[in-house]
Amino acid sequence: MGIGVLLGLLVGAVLGLTGAGGGILAVPALVFGLDMSMPRAVPIALIAVGMGAALGAIYGLRRGTVRYKAALLMAATGGLGSPLGVAMAYRLPADWLSVLFAGIMVWVGYRTFRQSLATSYQADHLEPAKACRISSNTGRFVWTARTALTLGSIGIISGICTGMLGVGGGFIIVPALARYTELRMQSIVPTSLTVIALVSAFTVASFLVRGFAVSPLEASFIGAVVGGMAIGQYFVKHLPTVMLQRGFASVCILVACLLLVRSLM
């Protein structure tokens, strides 16, 4: 049970520090650390990451940094997509899921590392107009059909990935919000955590309907993720963003290589 707690603390800490990385590390942690199959690891990862994300969402709501209307829209469309992802997870061979998951991890690691290389020179240049704009008067989204369609699309894609791979969806939501909205990271991370918590709840319900149950070992991992989330939230203010991004990118690529080797063997 000790290894489960240790892995859970690590996954929760990453989730708290990045708002996007816990889910993508939870499944490999369960597969390698607790010797689970992919179909078994997916719902456990979702429960753990969903509960950890809920804690982060509560912090964000208390600080007033969660864009709750956008989060509810993305969660609603994500809830529609998650049962499709669950159905795909039950139909695809476990090795295929592992290879697909590894490919996504490499992509996430590459994108995160590129983000860390961004210079102040690039940041000073004008960017094209975002699809989802923020009102200069109210500080809230200017709701248009384009805004709703963009946020709804982000939600449904993250929902499908959540159901199929148990990754929570933050690795899609965080970069998508950064690219298509004028939100700052102070709002993007807690808004992402809110969506992860809600979509994970929808998806876990789909697994429970199929008769899924949690063992004591798995429960200890879930509890540790929630504790690690609190630790990550505490330290996130004291660590440089570039260091967090590059460390997370390196871990993603390393774990992806291990998953590929395991599935090919």
Rank of each mutant, 00 (worst) to 15 (best):
G227M: 15
V204S: 04
G78R: 04
M265N: 14
A94L: 09
L183A: 13
V236M: 10
T138P: 02
S116G: 06
K237F: 04
E218M: 05
F248W: 00
A29H: 06
L55V: 15
C132W: 04
M51I: 14
G22Q: 09
Q115T: 13
T181I: 05
F141L: 11
S215C: 07
G64F: 03
V49W: 06
I188Y: 10
G223E: 06
A57G: 10
M105Q: 07
G79E: 02
V236R: 14
L55G: 10
V14Y: 02
Y59K: 15
R40A: 14
V99E: 11
F235H: 03
T203M: 09
F248I: 05
T147G: 15
V86W: 12
S135W: 07
I157S: 10
T138A: 08
Y68P: 00
G4F: 06
G139Q: 00
I24V: 15
A53I: 12
A178M: 12
V106E: 05
A118C: 07
P175H: 01
C132K: 01
V195Y: 10
I24N: 03
M38V: 15
P175R: 04
A102Q: 10
S37K: 08
A178C: 00
V261C: 01
A45P: 05
R67P: 01
P175I: 03
Y68H: 08
M38I: 15
G109K: 03
S192I: 11
